[in-house]
Amino acid sequence: MFGSMDPPENVYALIPKEEEEIQKPPRYVSSFHPAVVSENKQIKDVMRTMGPAKVELPSPDKYLKKRCKELQLPEQSHGSKGVSRVCALTQRRPPVPARTDRPPMGQTKGGFIKPAVMAPLKPTPVSVDSHKGHKQLLETSGLVPKYVTKKDYGEVPAYLQRRSEARWRSQEEHARLEKEQEEQEAMQQLTEEERQAALQHLKKKWDALHEEYQRLPLIIETMSKKAFKKSLEDAMNQLDKDICLLEKFPIIYITKN
């Protein structure tokens, strides 16, 4: 029992094996490693929050004086002496020309010649329509006869002609439809032969229904048979009314439909 659980023995398992050394790959080293090391060696955080360890005290000779903190302009150098700079806002403008001076004629700085006298503008014609002086443009007042001189003055416009033609066509179409409807709904008299033929047809139909009604059983219990009996009775009553109508009135009018 125990022998079956042991692994199978092998002669080659007794031979000692040489241990193989596992060759590890070279470790990755960043190319920026020297720069990072040099930055870490630099002293950057000295006196970051507490300030310098020792502060130089001010000298007693350098005390605050009057107007020592005012902004002072830089001193002029040797080359800038004698050069006057004038602000454009405070610069004096040229004097006003005298009455005896002649104006400059010909081409000016702008490169064009200014006209000496401008042409006067023509006044717009107006119309005064009240004693108080109310004015309005003459062109839009309606007093200028510009529409009378047109070629189509006094004629019916084309759009009104088209509208009247469309209305006339619609009226004709409506009249035609009404006439057709009246012809369809017109009554026509039934001839004697047709009346007798219809009467015989109704009587034959009544006989067929009556024969079928006579075949019904005496005792009817189911709902379907009761409904069938009721339908036969209604049909026979309607046929009786139609037969009486045809026999009573010799002249009968019917529609075409």
Score class of each variant (00 low, 15 high):
Lys241Ile: 13
Lys135Trp: 04
Ser30Phe: 05
Thr49Trp: 07
Lys54Phe: 07
Tyr63Thr: 15
Ile15Tyr: 07
Pro120Asn: 12
Gln23Met: 12
Thr149Ile: 04
Pro97His: 11
His134Tyr: 10
Gln181Trp: 01
Lys65Arg: 14
Met50Ala: 14
Ile251Tyr: 01
Ala119Val: 15
Arg162Cys: 06
Gln23Arg: 13
Lys226Val: 02
Tyr12Gly: 05
Ile252Asn: 13
Pro97Phe: 01
Arg102Asn: 05
Arg27Pro: 07
Lys146Gln: 05
Gln214Ile: 04
Glu185Lys: 12
Asp61Ser: 08
Glu221Phe: 00
Thr124Val: 14
Leu73Met: 12
Pro103Phe: 04
Glu183Asn: 10
Glu194Tyr: 00
Pro123Gln: 09
Gly82Trp: 00
Trp168Arg: 07
Leu64Ile: 15
Glu221His: 01
Ile254Leu: 01
Ala53Cys: 05
Met105Arg: 15
Thr149Ser: 11
Tyr153Pro: 13
Glu193Leu: 01
Glu139His: 09
His134Arg: 12
Lys205Met: 11
Ser224Thr: 06
Gln161Leu: 15
Tyr213Ile: 09
Leu143Trp: 00
Lys146Ser: 10
Val55Phe: 00
Glu192Asp: 14
Met187Asp: 08
Glu182Phe: 01
Glu211Gly: 13
Glu9Asn: 10
Met105Gly: 12
Thr149Val: 06
Thr90Ser: 03
Asn40Lys: 03
Thr108Cys: 04
Met118Ser: 14
Pro104Leu: 00
Pro104Gly: 01
Glu155Arg: 11
Glu155Phe: 11
Lys17His: 11
Met5Arg: 15
Pro157Ser: 15
Glu233Gly: 09
Lys114Leu: 13
Lys229His: 07
Thr124Asn: 09
Thr222Asn: 03
Gln91Tyr: 00
Glu19Cys: 06
Arg99Trp: 04
Lys150Phe: 04
Glu178Met: 01
Pro16Trp: 02
Leu209Thr: 01
Ser84Asp: 00
Leu216Gln: 11
His210Trp: 02
Pro157Gly: 11
Ser164Gln: 14
Pro74Asp: 11
Asn40Val: 09
Pro217Glu: 00
Pro26Leu: 13
Arg92His: 02
Lys179Asp: 13
Phe249Asp: 15
Met47Asn: 12
Thr100Phe: 04
Pro52Lys: 03
Val36Trp: 03
Arg169Glu: 07
Gln72Arg: 07
Pro123Gly: 08
Cys244Gln: 12
Glu75Gln: 06
Arg92Val: 15
Glu9Arg: 10
His131Met: 10
Ser224Val: 06
Met5Leu: 12
Lys135Met: 11
Arg99Gln: 03
Glu182Lys: 02
Met105Cys: 12
Leu246Ser: 05
His174Pro: 03
Asp45Met: 13
Gln181Glu: 03
Gly111Cys: 00
Ile254Arg: 08
Leu177Ser: 11
Gly154Thr: 15
Lys24Thr: 08
Gly111Ile: 04
Pro104Thr: 09
Glu182Asp: 02
Leu89Pro: 03
Gly79Lys: 05
Ser141Asn: 14
Pro8Gln: 02
Gln23Leu: 14
Ile251Trp: 01
His78Thr: 14
